[in-house]
Amino acid sequence: MFDIGFTELLLVGLVALMVLGPERLPGAVRTTGLWVGRLKRSFSNIKAEVEREIGADEIRRQLHNERILDLEREMKQSIMPPTTAASSNTAASDSPSTPNATPAPKPEPEPEPEPESVPEPIKAAEPTPVSRPDRSPEP
């Protein structure tokens, strides 16, 4: 990130020695090291927290989307029966081979399923609560 070589560090050290003097330089270096360490720790904590939050939100979103897709597939399967080879043959014979030919009568639609086999209405899926040891529990 910062391209600081040994010569630049040596130059900064010599300037600091001339400005602060030999008696105050060790204390200044120690204080600077402490502040740099604190900054690094705080930045790494912030970065970890942001990554945790982003990851948790994305996982919640993926789970929610998967539930919706599963419910949609179940509804499609319960509404539309699987197609068979007979229905594809019927569709091929529906198109007239000559322009003046009358189309074959279409089969009547299948009766709707009885009410007890109709799936329950879809409820909005709520994301599962995620335990957060570093925070108080959410309402």
Rank of each mutant, 00 (worst) to 15 (best):
Met1Pro: 07
Phe2Asn: 03
Asp3Tyr: 02
Ile4Thr: 06
Thr7Ile: 09
Leu9His: 10
Leu25Met: 07
Pro26Met: 04
Ala28Val: 03
Val29Ala: 12
Val29Leu: 13
Thr31Glu: 08
Leu34Gly: 11
Arg38Gln: 11
Leu39Pro: 01
Ser42Glu: 12
Ser42Leu: 13
Ser42Asp: 09
Ser44Leu: 15
Ser44Arg: 13
Asn45Gln: 10
Asn45Gly: 01
Arg52His: 08
Glu53Ser: 14
Ile54Gly: 03
Gly55Leu: 00
Gly55Asn: 02
Ala56Tyr: 00
Asp57Val: 05
Arg60Val: 07
Arg61Ile: 03
Arg61Glu: 12
Gln62Asn: 15
Gln62Leu: 15
Leu63Ser: 08
His64Asn: 05
Glu66Tyr: 11
Ile68Leu: 15
Leu69Phe: 02
Glu72Gln: 14
Glu72His: 13
Glu74Phe: 06
Lys76His: 12
Lys76Glu: 13
Gln77Lys: 05
Gln77Thr: 04
Ser78Trp: 03
Ile79Lys: 03
Met80Asp: 13
Pro81Lys: 03
Thr83Asn: 09
Thr84Asn: 02
Ala85Met: 10
Ser87Lys: 07
Ser87Leu: 07
Asn89Ala: 15
Thr90Cys: 03
Thr90His: 06
Ala92Val: 10
Ser93Thr: 15
Ser97Phe: 12
Pro99Val: 05
Asn100Gly: 13
Ala101Met: 01
Ala101Asp: 00
Pro103His: 03
Ala104Val: 14
Pro105Tyr: 09
Lys106Ala: 13
Pro107Tyr: 04
Glu108Thr: 15
Glu112Arg: 08
Glu112Lys: 10
Pro113Ile: 14
Pro115Cys: 00
Pro115Asp: 03
Ser117Leu: 13
Val118Arg: 10
Ile122Met: 12
Ala124His: 03
Ala124Val: 13
Ala125Pro: 08
Pro127Glu: 02
Thr128Lys: 09
Pro129Ser: 04
Val130Met: 03
Ser131Asp: 09
Arg132Gln: 08
Pro133Ala: 09
Pro137Lys: 00
Pro137Leu: 03
